[in-house]
Amino acid sequence: MIRFRQGRWSIACVCMVLGFMVAVQLRTTADMKGSVSYQRIEEITARLLNTEQERDGLKEELSALRKQKASEAGGSISEDIRLRAGLTPVEGEGIIVKLEDSSATAKAGENPNLYLIHDDDLLKVINELRAAGAEAISINGQRLIGTSEIRCAGPTLSVNNVRSAPPFEIRAIGDSKSLESAIRMRGGVAETLKVWGIQLEVSTSSSVYVPAYKGSTSHTYAHETEEKEGESK
């Protein structure tokens, strides 16, 4: 058919390069088709938001129905338990702690992370408040209950699996004087955080509103059981 008199090997090399390029191009195109487009992401995000709203609405309806049922049954014990569990919004004497990232800029060579609020800073504040007898605590509208977490989530914090960014507002109901002094204690949380310029503002109030826990309270793994003597230690 076609005969090349000269340079057969170099032509083979060129053909090899061509084959390589074709293969790479084929795979790149296949990859591009496989990835999700921005439009699709936006669409799905919108749908997720819608579903979340629907879920919240249903949850509210559910809690309203439960409340109705509880009031019909007239169980004062169950109401008390619900209050303890954080399922009802509460109000009372307490303090509001506002935390904001440091306004100071990090000097050259210094770690800017030191000037930001971290999950452990909040944990320390919460721990102090609990030690001082806080009865109900919320962070940025998220009620803290037995299973609540306070966790670093990139530049934000996650509480009850809901993310929020600074400034943080911690509301605590309890004896406002002891709560305030627990925060302002010498060598305590406020002083440590002030070293890094983190703005901490404490205000007491005779009526602090703490919202109810809005997440799910179902238990999948834990079952109620009899008390066992040997394993209680």
Binding site: F4, R8, W9, I11, A12, C13, V14, C15, M16, V17, L18, G19, F20, M21, V22, A23, V24, L26, R27, T28, D31
Partner: peptide, 19 residues
């Protein structure tokens, strides 16, 4: 020979994880 080269290049491109 060129066809062999083409096939070899294609195989290399397909096997190697170059994207």
């Amino acid at each position: 020979l060129p066809i062999l080269g083409l096939v070899a290049g294609f195989a290399i491109g397909y096997v190697f994880p170059v994207v």
